[in-house]
């Protein structure tokens, strides 16, 4: 029993650290896109994606603010696709139309609720950790 306990504990720890190992370098790289003129929103968003599966991020963007959205996966930029929709599902922006840009600025005239959908570019990755970071400036 004790041996099973130890073995399974190592398994659990190993899997936890695997997730950390997978996401940490991506997060570190993604942070570079929230440059010094942006204030980070104080939150860290990550999802483990496979194939065409999608993560959905719900945000309120306040009027009079410029937001920087950074979306990263894998070991280089351009692996994560993201679309920004308003609450009526009108497409406001897609990085697919802009060479899979790893970050983009959204200048918001009036407050609105948006949904950011993120998925891996199937031509570049089959699975991986998706990290999204948000910063803003006045």
């Amino acid at each position: 029993m004790n041996r099973i306990l130890i073995a399974l504990s190592f398994l659990a720890l190993g899997l936890g650290s695997q997730a950390q190992t997978l996401c940490q370098p991506i997060a570190t790289r993604c942070e570079q896109h929230i440059t010094a003129s942006y204030i980070p929103d104080g939150q860290f968003y990550r999802a483990l994606l496979q194939g065409e599966e999608m993560a959905e991020f719900n945000l309120t963007l306040f009027g009079g603010t410029t937001y920087r959205v950074a979306a990263c996966s894998g070991d280089s930029d351009g692996i994560l696709l993201f679309n920004v929709f308003d609450q009526e599902r009108n497409l406001l922006f897609s990085n697919r139309d802009n060479h899979n840009a790893p970050y983009w600025d959204l200048v918001v005239a009036s407050t609105l609720d948006v949904i950011v959908e993120a998925q891996l570019d199937p031509s570049k990755a089959g699975s991986g950790c998706a990290v999204m970071l948000i910063g803003f400036k006045r």
């Binding site: 104080g42 939150q43 959905e56 991020f57």
Partner: peptide
Amino acid sequence: ELIGLGGQFFSIPSPAQ
């Protein structure tokens, strides 16, 4: 905890805003 509620993530605006 890892994948959000039904694949959904929720952002709370920064208190700085």
